[in-house]
Design a binder for these strands. Sequence first.
DNA 1: CCAGCAAGGGACTAGAAAGTCCAAAATACT
DNA 2: AGTATTTTGGACTTTCTAGTCCCTTGCTGG
Lengths: 230, 230
Amino acid sequence: MGDGERDTERLRLTRRGAVTKARILQAAARLMYVQGVAATTLDDVRSVSGTSKSQLYRYFPDKDALVRDVITVQAEKRLEGQRRHLQRLGSIRGLERWRDAMVQSNALAGGAYGCPLGSLASEVADQDDKARAALAGHFRAWESLLEAGLSRMAESGVLREDADSGRLATGLMAALQGGYLLAQMAHDAEPMRVALDMAIDHVRSYAVMDGTGRTAVHLDQLPAAGRPNS
Amino acid sequence: MGDGERDTERLRLTRRGAVTKARILQAAARLMYVQGVAATTLDDVRSVSGTSKSQLYRYFPDKDALVRDVITVQAEKRLEGQRRHLQRLGSIRGLERWRDAMVQSNALAGGAYGCPLGSLASEVADQDDKARAALAGHFRAWESLLEAGLSRMAESGVLREDADSGRLATGLMAALQGGYLLAQMAHDAEPMRVALDMAIDHVRSYAVMDGTGRTAVHLDQLPAAGRPNS
DNA sequence: CCAGCAAGGGACTAGAAAGTCCAAAATACT
DNA sequence: AGTATTTTGGACTTTCTAGTCCCTTGCTGG
């Protein structure tokens, strides 16, 4: 999905060409993440990727196309990472581990830069409607990873049946994205932690309790429960 | 606060000059809000404001200075509006009215454009550290309007004493900002409503209950609270 | 080994955008 | 009124950047 195919037929490329194209995309993705899309010139991309102008235009029709491919690449990377974290999500505890991972990686950057996907989104949304729509799709996909986990929690009895996993997932995403923005401004990951704590408390408010005030079932601690790490 | 004074002495300006300067700022603020800062050229500003190049440079040393003044202006406008909504905040119901106002005005734009301050923030944060710090200050001021309201609610017994109004305010802000981002991408204000519902539920979880399982106002689910239609 | 095609280097162009300058018009000051 | 000062119009310069072009290098297949 999302390789950037168009109506016209594609340019044939050898292994070497593919490597170069990937190197360009890599450099562009990094630059656009840390400096923003608009502030990243093709000359920046050229020099960081160690290529030449003709390469850029050999592999990408123009800057917009490069941006769109960067969006695809970042979304795939992000979704891949989130899948790893969320595919076995099945308990409040699992949600907390996810929160910790998000906060920790944000703290590594001192809160700066924001969300790899979210920062692209806010910059591109009012500019390029195609890109906006693509981003919207990626966010839906991301949100459904959360939603699927919450649904499993409902089915396994961790959450009450009346919990609306779609709304809960939206709440988690909003808290995460809002947390990114506040953290970016404050240069401190703490606001993100606070925001995610709130969202998880909200999920917890739908948890089925036993008599001791603890969550009744801990699904993801029972079965296979692979490596929490990585 | 935030008039843009510098170390060096200021240029004297007559009433007419002040009006022109304001017209430029107004146009720049609007353009930068709808198109983004980077996509707004000085020529755009010139033509929309009906001025000439020399005016721009008479009243602002360069584009960065203009951007910084736009930030100040937008922050003042925003804070003024929020003060109106929040200065008497003292109940969950009041929070819901605030939410409705936020959602409704976002819905007017079909979710587009995002937050007047937040969109500036994400674009400028990694670019101009002075501007980032200023924005951070404005957000703190905004957040303390919420915090003050929540504190009043705690003092008046609407919220439990152990409610941390600072954290609750951060949660509300994150939900709002995350809601803006999701709404902008989806071109639909609904995600913002969901996010703010979550945050308000979280505040409600600190509400003091009476014997009937109701707060001074309400606890358990109000049915989605209100017309999606406006 | 040769032909053909992919990959690469980098100068060059076109145009957009920021920023400068000066003279004319409007306004303020006394 | 008469002078100083602010305001304005808009041409001009400079800088930056997307995008083009062409020639060289190198790989691949027959």
